[in-house]
């Protein structure tokens, strides 16, 4: 399921990042890669704060919806 469906406090593992463009590449270099552990900290309609590994990333929903995770 996409990262956007996580609830605050839920932990998941990243499975895939959709998209070939610059943004997908950017997300990967920032540590959003297959197998990375992630946890949703806060979110609202537009933007969310997620923990990936040891770092915290703020992502807008458009980007977050391209990150596929599994609980």
């Amino acid at each position: 399921m996409p990262l956007t469906l996580l609830r605050p406090g839920e932990k998941a593992t990243i499975r895939n990042i959709a998209g070939k463009d610059e943004i997908g590449c950017r997300l990967r270099t920032m540590g959003l890669v297959e197998g990375a552990a992630t946890e949703l900290i806060t979110s609202d309609n537009n933007i969310m704060l997620v923990k990936v590994g040891e770092c915290r990333l703020a992502l807008d929903k458009g980007m977050a919806s391209r990150v596929i995770v599994a609980l």
Partner: peptide
């Protein structure tokens, strides 16, 4: 631009 930014501790 799509928003992506690291949040420091």
């Amino acid at each position: 631009a799509p928003f992506v930014m690291e949040m420091p501790s």
